[in-house]
Design a protein around this nucleic acid. Sequence first.
DNA 1: ATGGCGTGTTACACACGA
Length: 266
Amino acid sequence: MRLATWNVNSVKARLPRLLDWLAGTEPDIVCLQETKCPAESFPVAEVSELGYAAAAHGDGRWNGVAVLSRVGLEEVTLSFPGEPGFAELDGVGAARPEARALGATCGGLRVWSLYAPNGRALDSPHYAYKLAWFAALRDALAEEMGTPLVACGDYNVAPTDADVWDPALFVGATHVTPAERQALAELLDLGLHDVVPTPMKGPHPYTYWDYRAGMFHQNKGMRIDLVYASTDVAERVRKAYVDREARKGKGPSDHAPIVVDLDPIN
DNA sequence: ATGGCGTGTTACACACGA
């Protein structure tokens, strides 16, 4: 079974590349993030022609996550239980969750496509929101730890300094703080495992490179897209790699997909 | 030191991303 996760930075803008990549890579299950389209605008028909069922969760112009599967797509959950919204956007009322999480059961695997809040700056309310979102995610995933589980997506946290091209530039910034890394540690404490992909070039399995200033060309990137797998799934991992070919050429996303090949269940 | 790119919007500059 082949599983993948990819922050596509607009599924509409990326559609030709996404379809080419699906046809060439032939994943069974794909988690997408930053689809940036309402669920009703998701290109269901186009991916269906390649044999994929699709479940999408969208807000409109921001965020948006989806799961594609050609091995079944059941028990779709939009947002995780207890997922907080960004309170300041909704004023005094209950904050509705943004479209940052979609769960589905595909081929015996419980799959989550996740797009963590960015956090923006340490003194921003978006940073507190990010930490609250991770705490609620931990509690939600704890309820599903009995079944084969993968929580894939753009976590917007670099797990270690080795996952950032220049840690000195990130002093005082989000994505690298002890609190954010503690949030990841607490997910691992549930019994999840970081499925670290093999880089296709260079020593670092970066998954994101800024569009500007030739960052990709210089391999100045970050590893912020992660695959967290329960023990039984992690033990089935035969191969995992960053598909940096998908970051090349004209009109790429700023993220590369992670592809994970799993052995069949014994 | 700064910003460099790309996406979406009811746009024709701005918000956002990491």
